[in-house]
Design a protein around this nucleic acid. Structure first.
Ligand SMILES: [Zn+2]
Ligand SMILES: [Zn+2]
Ligand SMILES: [Zn+2]
Ligand SMILES: [Zn+2]
Lengths: 167, 167
DNA sequence: GACATTATGTTACACTATAACAACTTTTTC
DNA sequence: GAAAAAGTTGTTATAGTGTAACATAATGTC
């Protein structure tokens, strides 16, 4: 019953649907785990999902304050920890920033396409790529637990714009 | 004439040879680029190569001070920038730490095996994995410039130890 | 030697993340 | 339902990572 369609984050789409789906999935997963999606945690999750650009913890903190929530670093880091542990968001290591997970619930390490131009991030979920990497590690006798895959480049939209505005 | 043998960082080996080779290669590359491998830069490179465990900038700073060098953060970050730009070291994003590059000179993004137990890092150089990732991105219309591939797990040595000390 | 270029010294600060403990809420147990 | 336990949030302070900006010194070019 997973609704996670494979619409690319880069392609134009009804993003409110992304948000709604993310919240709904979060509620479902928290129910399953007997965890509580408190107002603060939900607020952070919604802020993260406000776009497909990863957000830093302190940017989130700023926005939380504007929403009238309490504003100290531990507040936001606790919410982030919770969301990370429940697989609702990912941390982008090369950006020190956080982005919503598109396939929550299915334990997985993310594979990310990061556009250097528009800052947007799309999450790949290519299991065969994952196992290809495991194989590569295994060939050196290494047992892989988790992977950080972050690919920087140019997204389709930004490529088009580039070709329209040469020079 | 490249001496970069494919000895794994994890396997026991004459590590002084790693260091010697690294410095020699660094000198060669700097000569090629008309860049100067100053004493400070070389000191940082040697410290990084003192083991196969990635080192943080401030740990380096500490060690530099013990060697009598000037000790302010910019000093070490400048050296790191220089070494990064010349492809002599890599930054491990998920550790905020730096490690020596085993194939300097050949423009490449590193692929790293990081042992959670002994903290040592081995650098893979699997071009076919690189292109496999590019393909995966291309399938989404994404043009990849660079990749961050960091695989966490257990190295062969630590696996053996684990099996000797069960429980 | 005068000049431009490159490298280093120095101070101060910005950004990212956590430790430690107190107060409050919700859930569980009796 | 009161008491205890577990979980969540508030609060203060601090640790860890990285840069900006400007001064000084060393090196290379003519
Ligand atoms: Zn969306
Ligand atoms: Zn883009
Ligand atoms: Zn070695
Ligand atoms: Zn190991």
């Amino acid at each position: 019953m997973s609704h996670s369609r494979d619409t690319d984050a880069f392609s134009p789409h009804d993003h409110r649907r992304c948000i709604r789906t993310a919240i709904a999935e979060a509620e479902r997963i928290c129910l399953e785990h007997n965890s509580r999606l408190t107002p603060q945690r939900q607020a952070v999750l919604e802020l993260i999902w406000s776009s497909h650009k990863p957000v830093g913890a302190y940017a989130l903190l700023e926005q939380l304050r504007e929403l009238g929530h309490n504003g100290q670093p531990p507040t936001v880091y606790r919410a982030l920890d919770f969301l990370l542990q429940h697989g609702l968001i990912h941390r982008i290591e090369s950006l020190n920033a956080y982005t919503g997970c598109r396939h929550p619930g299915e334990h997985h390490t993310g594979q990310f396409l990061i556009c250097s131009q528009c800052q947007q991030v799309a999450e790949l979920d290519d299991p065969s790529l994952g196992s290809r990497i495991e194989d590569s590690a295994a060939r050196h006798g290494f047992v892989a637990d988790s992977q950080v895959i972050e690919i920087r480049g140019t997204c389709p939209q930004c490529q088009q714009q580039d070709s329209h505005e040469p020079r």
